[in-house]
Design a protein around this nucleic acid. Structure first.
Lengths: 198, 198
DNA sequence: CTAGATATAGGACGACTGTCCAAATGCAGA
DNA sequence: TCTGCATTTGGACAGTCGTCCTATATCTAG
């Protein structure tokens, strides 16, 4: 079936774009990874940028699905935010090798002046909005977006350095710090609320 | 003179590698930027990787020079650390366009499995050691390296997101947060010292 | 002023790039 | 079984890549 091949192309391209970058990945690389002829590509995609679009859409869908799952299973918003922070550990090995899939793609597309840069930024926005929603539910109000951006940035920095130094200890230590920071924020919030109420 | 041309090549390559990435920058790009013929390259460099090495060495030298300057002029270590944090603002425009020169190069070379990745990481090490030294002088002892890595990571994350969202406000806000964090650390340190002494 | 080293120019090279196309194959319904 | 569409193949294409080579120009030392 045609859809199967198309999906296999997108899946292989997704992995290769992550591991070696968009520019450095050629049609020949993807073709040999999928096990098809190069010519067959243009029956499924018009151009390489089309594949990039599909890869980004795939990532958007997968991310949305993951965040939705967390929103259903995770009981309280703080626990959900901790789930986000712990992606760094769950994907630690990949991150040490290739960095964060979102951040590195966004950086590369920025340097390439690529039209899809804003689409890659939409991946960040997905996390940002989800995190903001969790902070809002915790009662942070207008500060929620700032806090969402803050831990989004923290995790980006951790990913970059863990990759540069291939350092697992640093990664774990910073994850602990981020969780502690979250607890502090929540503690600060409740004391403020209490002092207002009382 | 030959050295002049060589330096101009390195300078142009440095800029282009930063703005468009190592892989995406061709000899033709550098040649036209310098205003010389392509063939002339191989009188100064054997290979493209040789240019990359020279560019990294140039960055290492420039960075070391900048840090040395800060260590001479800046009176107290805390002020020096604040100088580091404020690079984000000083270079804000470039960072929003192209990200952090150190982090993005390191990420790219990691994906390319490039031999010079460790050389790029040495750039990080330069900042890391310098920061650690400042924290040591402030009296943080064994925690100095952790703290150095922490703000190094924070600034990396800020650069990545400021680039992805092209957001100047976020950049400034996070710089303020980092300075506040530094003040907190120092405040926590002196109270501990006082309580020990008394 | 000349000989030799240094520097530059411009093009050749094979390999690879993204793109496109014609021919072959596989599979559906009539 | 035959027709027609979807799918796949392998190669052609123009261009660019990093690399290399030779001829020319420029400069310096004797």
């Amino acid at each position: 079936m045609a859809v199967e091949t198309r999906d296999r192309i997108i899946e292989a391209a997704d992995l290769l774009f992550y591991q070696h970058g968009f520019e450095a990945t050629s049609f020949a690389d993807i073709a040999s990874a999928v096990g098809i002829s190069r010519g067959n590509f243009y029956h499924h995609f018009k151009t390489k940028d089309d594949i990039l679009d599909s890869v980004i859409n795939r990532r958007l869908a997968n991310t949305e699905q993951m965040l939705d799952r967390w929103e259903v299973t995770g009981s309280d918003p703080a626990e959900r935010i901790r789930s986000f922070i712990h992606i760094l550990i769950v994907n630690g090995e990949k991150i040490r090798k290739f960095g964060c899939p979102v951040g590195t793609l966004s950086s590369e597309l920025a340097k390439l002046n690529h039209a899809a840069k804003s689409d890659a930024a939409a991946l960040f926005t997905l996390f940002r909005s989800w995190l903001r929603r969790q902070f809002e539910r915790l009662g942070f109000g207008d500060r929620s977006d700032e806090l969402a951006m803050h831990i989004l940035g923290r995790s980006q920095g951790v990913a970059t350095l863990a990759n540069a130094f291939d350092d697992d200890g640093f990664l774990h230590h910073e994850v602990d710090l981020m969780c502690a920071w979250l607890d502090d924020q929540i503690a600060g919030l409740t004391t403020t609320n209490n002092s207002i109420r009382e």
